[in-house]
Write a protein that binds this DNA or RNA. Structure first.
Lengths: 351, 351
DNA sequence: CGGCAGCATGAAAGCGCTTTCTATCGCGCG
DNA sequence: CGCGCGATAGAAAGCGCTTTCATGCTGCCG
C-alpha cells in the first residue's frame, strides 16, 4: 500500500515464504497446492494488494484474453448494438473488449487492425459495410493473413467475405432479403412508385439493399424508374434534404424506402415540414430497426437486424465456441442471421 | 507469411544481419541508426510481416499505452457520448481504449477496475453516478489507491469525489446547477406545481438534480409538495407508467421535470396517449440532451451536458496533459464542465 | 526396515522486448 | 603520428510471469 511500484509475484512469494512458482499455481488454480500453503499465499496477496501483470502473463503464457472490435462510431446505435453483443459475449468467455473507432477512415481502420494485432487480441472484429476498393481489400486481406499466422482471427461482421483464400470468418445478415421483403410489402400494399433514398453508393450494404429492392420490383414486373433511386449517405440530413428537393421538383411517388432508419428520420421530418401526412399521403419504411424507429410518429415500419446477436456470433465464431453438434464438422467459418420486417404505422395503401 | 507463429525481433535482426537492439532502435526511432542499416532492417520487417508484441513491449518498457473506461451500457447515449470523447482523446494521445460495461452491477464494476489494473491501463475512467453505499465506496477507494501506487489513475467522471485522501481525479458537470436553472425557467414561465419524475433515489445524479430543483423552488418561495416528487429509475418505462398512474389519480400539476430525457420520452408518450397536449396543457423538460430530445414532438426543452467533452477531459486529466499555463501549478485533479438549458418546444406558460 | 510411489514444492529457463553499458571504427586535432 | 571523441552497433541484463523438470518428503507395501 505504501511502496510506489506494485508488488510482484516474487514479493508475494517472499512474504509467504514460498517460491514464485507456487504463487503462480495458487493464482491459476491449475495445479494442486496444499491448503495451508494456499492460504498463506492468499493472505500475502491480500496484504500486499498484489495485482497480476497481464502483460507478463500474456508474454509467458500465450493469450491475452482480449478481443478487439473496430467500428465507425460508438454513438451510432447500429454499431453500438453490435458492440454490446461483442462486449457481452467476450465477457462470457472471460475476455476484455477493446473498442476502436475509425470515424469512417480506411486508413485508420487498417492502422487499428495492426494495433490490435500488436496487442495480440484473440480476435479482431471488423464491423460494418465495406466500400468497393481493390487496394483496400488487398490490405485487409494481408492483415487477415498476418493475424491468422499469429493464431488470431479477423472476423468480418456485416460485410462480404474477401474470398476463400483469405482466412477470415464472417457474420452476415440477410441484407438483400430484408430489402426484398420490405419492398414486396410496399408493393402488396399497392405502391408502384417507390423512392429509394440514401446509403453511400459504393458501400456493400447499400448495394445489397438496393439489389433486394430491385429484385422485388422485378419479380412483380415493375419497371425500375431511374429517377426513383437516390443513393448518397446514411445520415439524417441526406434524407431531409433529398425529400425537400424532390418534393419541390414535383417528383411522383407514393412511398419511400429509406436505406436506413436514420435517413428515414430525416425523411419524416421533411415530410412533416412540407405538411405531407404519413402514411396517408406518403408511406415510409426504413432499415435496421434502431430505437429512433420507435420514436418517430408514426412509428416506423422497418427491417429488423439482430444486431446484438451478430456481435455475439462474431466472438463465438472467432473463439471457436462449438455450435450444436459440430464436433466432427470442419471449423465453422460463416454465420448468417436473418432479418425480418417489423410492421408499425408508417405504411398504408396509396390513395 | 508461411510460418505458423509470428516473427520476433530476433528473426528480423537475423535477417537484416544486425542485433535485436538495432531493430528495436529502428522501430522506436529513439536512437540514431545509420541510414543503410535502417533500410535493411525496414526491408526485413516488411518481408517477414513482423508485428511488434505489445506485451513484451509493455513489460520491458513501462506503459501499455492503453486507457480503460467503465460504463453501464454502450448503447445508452449518455454513456456512448462520453465513451466517444474518451476514445477520441485517447487516440489523440496514442492510446488504445478498452471499453467495459457493468450493466449496472457494482460487483462487476469493481471486478473491471481490477481487470483494467491488471492490464496496466494508463488510466481507468469510471463513468456515471454512484449509489450511496459506504462499503462500495471503500472498495472503490481501495482500488484507487492500488492504481495510484502502480502509477495509474482512477478518474471519476460524473460522480462525486471520494474524499481528499483518495487519490482520484474527477470530472464533474454542474448537475445541481442545471436542475436549478431549468426549474427556475419553468417557474418564470408561470408554473407552480412541477412534478419531478425519475432517477434512482440513492444515485448521486438524482440527488444532485433533485437538490437543484428544490433550491430553485425555495428561492422562489414555493413549497415543495411531497406528492410532486417521484424518484424511481432512469428508464422510459418509468416515465410512462408513472404519468399514466398520476393522471389517473387526478394529481394536480402543470409541468413535469423528468430526471433525464429517456424518462421524458416515456412521459411524452403517456401524455400523448392520454390526449394531453404538450406544451399547451402540460409542459415537459428533461435532462442530458441526448438525441431522443430532438426526436420527440414537440422537441424537448432540456439541460445540455457536454458529454463528449467530459470524456475528453477525463483522459486529459488522467494523462496529465498540461492545461493553459499550469507548468508551475500543482497537478490538476478536478475539472468541472458547465451545463446549459436548451430551449425547444415542450414548455409554455400554464393555462 | 528398505525402497518406491506420488504429492507438494522449488529452480530455472524462457516469452519478446527495451535499455544500459561496452566495443569498434574512422577521423580531426595537437 | 598518436590520442580522444563522435557516431554506430552489439551484448546482456532484466521486465513479471508460466511451466517444465528436478527434488524432497511422506507413507505404505513387501
Amino acid at each position: 500500500m505504501t511502496e510506489m511500484s506494485s508488488a510482484t509475484i516474487a514479493d508475494v512469494a517472499k512474504r509467504a515464504g514460498v517460491s514464485s512458482a507456487t504463487v503462480s499455481r495458487v493464482i491459476n488454480r491449475n495445479y494442486p497446492v496444499a491448503t495451508s500453503t494456499r492460504e498463506r499465499v492468499e493472505a500475502a496477496i491480500a496484504e500486499l494488494g498484489y495485482v497480476a501483470n497481464a502483460h507478463a502473463r500474456a508474454l509467458a503464457g500465450s493469450t491475452n484474453r482480449t478481443v478487439g472490435i473496430i467500428i465507425n462510431d460508438v454513438v451510432d446505435p447500429f454499431y453500438a448494438y453490435i458492440a454490446r453483443g461483442v462486449e457481452r459475449e467476450a465477457t462470457v468467455h472471460g475476455r476484455l473488449c477493446m473498442v476502436c473507432c475509425t470515424q469512417g477512415s480506411h486508413e485508420k481502420e487498417l492502422a487499428l487492425i495492426d494495433l490490435l494485432h500488436e496487442q495480440r487480441a484473440d480476435a479482431v472484429i471488423l464491423v460494418g459495410g465495406a466500400h468497393e476498393d481493390r487496394a483496400y481489400a488487398a490490405e485487409v486481406g494481408r492483415r487477415a493473413r498476418a493475424l491468422h499466422t499469429a493464431g488470431s482471427t479477423l472476423v468480418l461482421c456485416g460485410r462480404p467475405s474477401l474470398g476463400d483464400d483469405v482466412p477470415t470468418k464472417v457474420v452476415e445478415y440477410d441484407n438483400e432479403g430484408g430489402a426484398f421483403a420490405i419492398t414486396d410489402y410496399l408493393i402488396t400494399q399497392g405502391h408502384r412508385r417507390i423512392l429509394f433514398l440514401g446509403g453511400p453508393p459504393s458501400l456493400s450494404t447499400t448495394i445489397a439493399r438496393l439489389a433486394g429492392h430491385r429484385r422485388a420490383l422485378e419479380m412483380r414486373g415493375l419497371a425500375q424508374a431511374k429517377e426513383l433511386v437516390h443513393t448518397g449517405s446514411f445520415n439524417r440530413r441526406f434524407g431531409y434534404d433529398k425529400v425537400r428537393a424532390l418534393l419541390a421538383e414535383g417528383l411522383d411517388f407514393t412511398a419511400i424506402f429509406a436505406a436506413n432508419d436514420t435517413v428515414a428520420a430525416g425523411v419524416m421530418q421533411a415530410l412533416e415540414l412540407a405538411g405531407v401526412s404519413v402514411p396517408e399521403e406518403i408511406s415510409v419504411v426504413g432499415y435496421d430497426d434502431v430505437p429512433v424507429a420507435q420514436e418517430l410518429r408514426p412509428q416506423l415500419t422497418t427491417v429488423r437486424i439482430p444486431l446484438e446477436e451478430m456481435g455475439r456470433q462474431a466472438v463465438r465464431l472467432a473463439l471457436g465456441v462449438a455450435g450444436e453438434s459440430d464436433y466432427l464438422a470442419p471449423v465453422q467459418t460463416t454465420t448468417r442471421v436473418g432479418t425480418s420486417i417489423v410492421v408499425r404505422g408508417s405504411v398504408a395503401p396509396p390513395r
